[in-house]
């Protein structure tokens, strides 16, 4: 069985968000990049499957050379090899089209992505790839089991969950719940040593110009918090009801 885990490398969740080049680019100075949290659940799930079913796990990411340290971390967690598709990854369509070319040429039984990336929050790469390579796709997965030549997949939806059965191959987009938080794999010393000699191949990419980013800006700072005395809860309720009209 062959599994591709597509990961996005995103700024650490505590990063300060600033822009440079006249507000046209995210300022990467001093930013530490990590595996996108939603993708981490997917990667751990793939390693669990590998441990039980002897799968080969390949991590794939579209990005510049700076993301290689993050790919090495994924190798240290247990992936067998890594592919970096060399591209600025400037928008979701560009990322999706480049992933599609690789995933169409290399057959996988299961492709795991994350529900959305923590930086641009698009959540559309998986759907575009699914269409381009003609696969079934389930988003926001909180459960995955293998049953012969099919997958039993549980997805989150508004007000509940839905469990479905789909024949292999399939693309899923994972999130917390696919594995439990406490079970997330973290690299150990042996993994880190092994990762150094695992293959990390770089592929060429294409550029696509569907969308042009014009500029970024930040929301205006919140006004000061209005403090209300704990003995005066009635005033808060009055404000919420009459001034803010939100009750």
């Amino acid at each position: 069985m062959k599994i591709a885990v597509c990961i996005s490398c995103v700024p650490d969740t505590t990063s300060k968000i600033n822009f440079t080049e006249n507000n046209t680019e995210f300022n990467k100075e001093g930013i530490q990049f990590i595996i996108n949290p939603n993708d981490e659940f997917g990667l751990t799930k793939a390693i669990f499957i590998k441990e039980q079913n002897q799968a080969e796990v390949i991590v794939v990411s579209v990005g510049e050379s700076s993301i290689e340290s993050v790919l090495r971390k994924a190798l240290a967690i247990g992936a067998d090899s890594a592919i970096r598709i060399d591209n600025k990854a400037k928008d979701s369509i560009c990322v999706a089209k480049n992933l599609s070319s690789y995933l169409a040429e290399n057959k996988f039984d299961l492709i795991i992505m994350g529900k959305e990336s923590a930086d641009y929050n698009g959540g559309i790469v998986h759907g575009i790839v699914a269409e381009n390579i003609g696969m079934q796709f389930v988003n926001a997965c909180v459960g995955l089991e293998i049953s012969d030549d099919s997958y039993i997949i549980e997805r989150e939806m508004e007000g509940g969950t839905e469990k479905v059965k789909i024949k292999s191959p399939v693309i899923i987009a994972g999130q917390k719940g696919l594995v439990e938080e406490k079970d997330l794999k973290i690299p150990n010393m042996r993994g880190i040593m092994q990762a150094r000699s695992k293959p990390l191949n770089v592929l060429e990419s294409e550029n696509f110009d569907f969308i042009q980013s014009i500029e970024f800006n930040k929301p205006s700072e919140n006004k000061e918090c209005v403090f209300i005395d704990e003995e005066n809860v009635a005033e808060l309720v009055k404000i919420l009801n009459e001034k803010e009209k939100v009750l």
């Binding site: 968000i17 822009f19 928008d91 923590a118 930086d119 641009y120 929050n121 110009d209 569907f210 969308i211 042009q212 980013s213 014009i214 500029e215 970024f216 800006n217 930040k218 929301p219």
Partner: peptide
């Protein structure tokens, strides 16, 4: 909205 609502992006389509 981008960056979990910490910023906005103005974007233009070429399609």
């Amino acid at each position: 909205k981008v960056f979990s609502s910490k910023a906005f992006e103005i974007a233009k389509s070429s399609s």
